[in-house]
Design a protein around this nucleic acid. Structure first.
Lengths: 256, 256
DNA sequence: TTTTAGTGCAGGTCTAGACCACGTTCTCTC
DNA sequence: GAGAGAACGTGGTCTAGACCTGCACTAAAA
């Protein structure tokens, strides 16, 4: 049974400058979140077009987007249905605080340095910038439940975050980047390796020199521009990484 | 410089029953494969529409599909461009031999054991089987360019691979599993951590005891059934793992 | 010589229809 | 009552336009 399109609250604002299909997509998304259990049917495309006074192609664009996100799925001849929400345990561009909260631990951080530096040859190469470019360096000791978890160093091009250094060191770097500077990390790559604790890192992490650590280098991007290069050293005894895999070409599981 | 749409060979068959945008998508795909180096521009949507006598929306559907596959990418105001084929350094369900060949190294392996055992309590839990279930244990020292790279131990339910133990130990385990037994690994999960080399592992890998190693435990599945549990220890000085990341909900990366 | 304002073309979005294939459901016939 | 077929509604595809914004290039102005 398809819900009536009249049940959807909200309306399209044609003067807002936001694409109509985006507005409709978000209306549908919240409608689904509020009143559609998995498996329930959405109003038909034609109903939606009439309800909002849009062309069906425009409605399809909104629905296409949600289908692409695997929020809903289409069945020819039947309608459009809400899918079971994904488990979403993937390796993601999450910040440390998000990550620890997800694990049920209390995150904390001790700021080791928060300053502007010039890009060294190495950093310039990693960040794809010219040597000497001003960078914000943000180095922290991260704790979980009060115990040292990792040492974490971020490098961000200074021109991306004007005024960042004038304030207090952020508690959650990724939150500040997205909320204050509009830098929402979209994608990135991690380089993962095992390494032995150097004397300085060992002291900070409260482990013995030479203890195994998980070293994760991350390049994070917004659009085509690299915005953050970071190096983290995780205590091997406290941190494991879970990575879902998929054979190339394999289709995603259908979770009917 | 966009290529001329006239350069594309082939034509649309409206009587074929295949959707026009699918036909165009495939025409474009082969055109790209044959004559478009990465970075080169495709004809504009309007050119393509005229060349094939289609509506621009239809052309866009074909292009949308290829953009979704990350074969090409759109840049507003500029055009549509062929992407660099993915480097494909992703974490994948690849076998060791595939992996090393991809890295341009000569893979080799020394078989340490190839036998049938009964599942221990630990292995039974990992493989979601009953304790004592017959397993094939396959332990190898893996070399790259003649140097030890990792120690690798696979456990496979024996009933999945009847007769495997009668023959020679396989060179490429995943190949034999898929070709002889139809077990094509579809998905899996890796647990990655750093650890210190035990005396026995250190001797095999030719490193000092306590050296950092990357430990990767893998569960690999065919359909819903677990088919392989493996533990590998990689020399930290010779192996790094590259993991692509994506913010949930974010669009796929463009890696220019 | 440097800066600025066009201009043209790229993709982005949107419309108001059309016909098709497919699945359900109802009705008519046997 | 059971089966066949028609009617209806769904998403799938397609058209031929429209106007928008963003980018590169060029010609004119400073």
């Amino acid at each position: 049974m398809a819900a009536s399109a009249a049940a959807i609250t909200g309306d399209i604002d044609r003067a807002s400058g936001v694409a109509i299909y985006i507005q409709l997509r978000e209306l549908l998304r919240s409608y689904i979140a509020e009143s559609c259990p998995p498996g329930s049917a959405l109003p038909s495309e034609r109903d939606l077009a009439e309800r909002f006074g849009l062309a069906r192609m425009t409605v399809r664009q909104a629905i296409d987007a949600l289908v692409g996100e695997e929020v809903i799925e289409r069945v020819v001849g039947l309608g459009t249905f809400v899918r079971r929400p994904k488990l979403d345990l993937q390796v993601k561009l999450t910040s440390y605080s998000e990550e620890m909260q997800r694990r049920g631990m209390v995150p904390a951080a001790k700021v080791l340095s928060f300053e502007q530096i010039g890009a060294s040859a190495f950093l310039a190469r990693e960040l794809q910038l010219d040597e000497g470019t001003p960078l914000v360096r943000f180095r922290r000791l991260l704790l979980a439940d009060g115990e040292p978890m990792s040492v974490d160093e971020n490098f961000i091009p200074a021109h991306r975050v004007p005024g960042l250094l004038d304030g207090e060191p952020p508690t959650s770097l990724y939150n500040v980047l997205s909320e204050q500077f509009g830098l929402v990390m979209e994608w990135g790559e991690d380089m993962i390796e095992a390494t032995a604790a150097s004397p300085s890192t060992a002291r900070l992490l409260n482990v013995e020199v030479g203890s195994p650590l998980l070293k994760i280098q991350r390049h994070a991007f917004v659009a085509r521009a690299m915005v953050d290069y970071s190096v983290s050293y995780y205590r091997a005894d406290r941190y494991k990484l879970w990575v879902p895999l998929q054979r190339p070409g394999a289709r995603r599981a259908r979770n009917h």
